[in-house]
Amino acid sequence: MVSVKALGVSDATPVEPVVVAQPASGKPVRKSAHAHHAGHRERLRQRAKAGGFVALPDYELLELYLFRTYPRGDVKPLAKSLLTRFGSLGGVLGATIEELATVPGVGEGAAMDIKLLHEATLRAGRDKIVKRPVISSWSALLGYVRVALANESREQFRVLFLDKKNQLIADEVMNRGTVDHAPVYPREIMRRALELSSSNLIILHNHPSGDPTPSRPDIDMTKQIVEAGKALKIAVHDHLVVGREGVASFKALGLM
Rank of each mutant, 00 (worst) to 15 (best):
R85L: 04
M256G: 14
G73L: 00
K49R: 15
A182W: 03
K80N: 04
G107V: 01
P217S: 07
K233T: 15
A21Q: 14
L122S: 14
G105S: 00
H40V: 05
A231G: 12
G51R: 08
V173G: 05
L83E: 14
L196E: 08
R192F: 04
G105Y: 01
D113N: 03
R146S: 15
S199K: 14
D180C: 02
A182D: 04
V92H: 05
A6S: 14
A228P: 00
G109P: 00
K76R: 13
V75Q: 04
A55I: 02
L196Y: 09
H239M: 15
D171S: 14
E63N: 01
G105V: 01
T69Y: 00
S197P: 00
R126V: 15
L56I: 02
E227W: 08
L82Q: 06
T13V: 06
A48D: 11
K128V: 13
P212F: 06
Q224G: 00
S215D: 09
G229S: 11
R30A: 00
P14V: 07
D11M: 11
I114Y: 05
V92E: 11
Y65G: 01
G8P: 02
G246L: 09
R45L: 08
E155N: 05
T69S: 02
L66H: 03
K49N: 09
L149R: 03
A170C: 04
R43L: 13
L117M: 10
R154A: 08
L240W: 05
E98M: 06
R72W: 05
S81I: 00
A150T: 09
N166P: 00
S197W: 06
R158I: 02
V103D: 02
V54C: 02
L201I: 12
T102H: 07
Y65D: 01
G210R: 03
V20G: 04
L253W: 02
I234Y: 12
I97F: 10
K223G: 06
E152L: 14
K27S: 06
I219D: 12
L56Y: 01
S139P: 05
R85E: 12
E60W: 08
H239C: 12
V130F: 11
I97T: 10
G254T: 02
E42F: 11
V20S: 09
L149A: 08
L149F: 10
H181R: 08
V15N: 03
E172M: 10
Q46D: 06
W138Q: 14
L122A: 10
L204W: 11
Q167I: 08
L122W: 13
G246D: 11
K233Y: 13
A35Q: 12
F67K: 03
Q224F: 09
L116T: 12
T222M: 12
D171L: 11
S136V: 11
A55E: 09
K164M: 13
V147C: 11
T96I: 02
L82E: 09
N206L: 04
D163Y: 08
A140T: 13
R43P: 00
G105Q: 04
L232N: 13
K131I: 09
L83T: 10
V242K: 08
T178V: 01
V179W: 06
A228G: 15
D180L: 01
G90V: 15
I219H: 15
H118L: 04
H207T: 10
E16K: 05
G254H: 06
K5A: 13
L116M: 11
